[in-house]
Design a protein around this nucleic acid. Structure first.
Lengths: 160, 160
DNA sequence: ATTTTTCCTACTAAGTTAATGGGAAAGATA
DNA sequence: TATCTTTCCCATTAACTTAGTAGGAAAAAT
């Protein structure tokens, strides 16, 4: 239904990683159990397990099984961008009718529509690739991003 | 699967409107038949009919039934933004787990995640609300948008 | 009347999302 | 060794969305 959709997976994944970021800043090797994250962020525990496994397979998270096991960040939170997380969980950032924007072809007066979709993807990258877990944890977003938040109406839904 | 997805409806809708833009610039009252648009842009004709009806209900397109009928833009192409089109066909620009970004609530270290999603929506609006049908038809996009297209790598997919 | 064209409702197949369930594997402790 | 804990992995599912298709009613022109 929506053009930009942050899926439950991406949203839950970011929340889980922000819990791991807090633990990492206390002690980089500290493990946090899935059950603890699940309760802290109110995420269904089995769903969370799958998300954390995908994040491990992408090299963002490390895990240890067994008693005293759990999850931790495998990289510094300043080196994990939101784009990394979203790509790990939901695949490519942008698509046009299921294809990559650069792969679609247009005829006649639609010739330059492709540029529009490429620009949409570039705008999305400019936000998501430049915000890290550390930025969100510290509430210290890059200046171009805070500029977006200061635009009039940014926090309100559009009337039309 | 993807965070940003331009649906078939939005893509077809834009292409149909760009055909109507060309006709409008020839003569603002000129009607174009659905069948002609369908063939020019290779869009399934019954699917296109539904799209054009939605665009009419949103006041972007006007139509006339019967022989010598067809569709035309109901506003100047310089006054129709891509955001108008996408909202008419796919609803709100952005959602987080099916809700409006400003309606989601976060606890603990996720507290400031909401700002991120609001910024994502603002970035999308900044592109889609400032490009009009006339801009795309004339291949004359606003300067901030062409700046996005000139960024290194904007036209390539990401390696990771 | 007949033809043309849009308008409207209903239906459908395939795919995606957001989960759930069961159990295997690995690690810690006694 | 036995037991407990926790992650890992595979299969399944209900609800929803997407991308259409089908059939015919309504309106306009000749």
């Amino acid at each position: 239904m929506q053009t930009v959709h942050i899926s439950a997976k991406a949203d839950y994944g970011m929340r889980a990683l922000l819990e791991l970021t807090a633990a990492y800043q206390d002690n980089p090797k500290q493990l946090v159990k899935g059950d603890v994250i699940s309760k802290a962020q109110d995420i269904p525990v089995k769903f969370l397990e799958g998300i954390l496994r995908q994040l491990r397979q992408s090299g963002i998270v490390a895990s240890q099984r067994g008693a005293e096991g759990g999850y931790r960040l495998d990289r510094s939170p300043a080196e994990v961008s939101i784009a990394d997380v979203v790509r790990a969980l939901d695949g490519p950032l942008a698509a046009v009718r299921g294809q990559r924007p650069e792969d679609v072809a247009y005829a006649g007066p639609s010739e330059h529509l492709k540029e529009v979709w490429i620009a949409v993807r570039a705008a999305m990258r400019d936000v998501l690739e430049h915000i890290t877990l550390a930025d969100v944890a510290a509430n210290n977003l890059p200046a171009p991003v805070t500029a977006l938040l200061d635009e009039p109406g940014a926090w309100q839904r559009r009337n039309s």
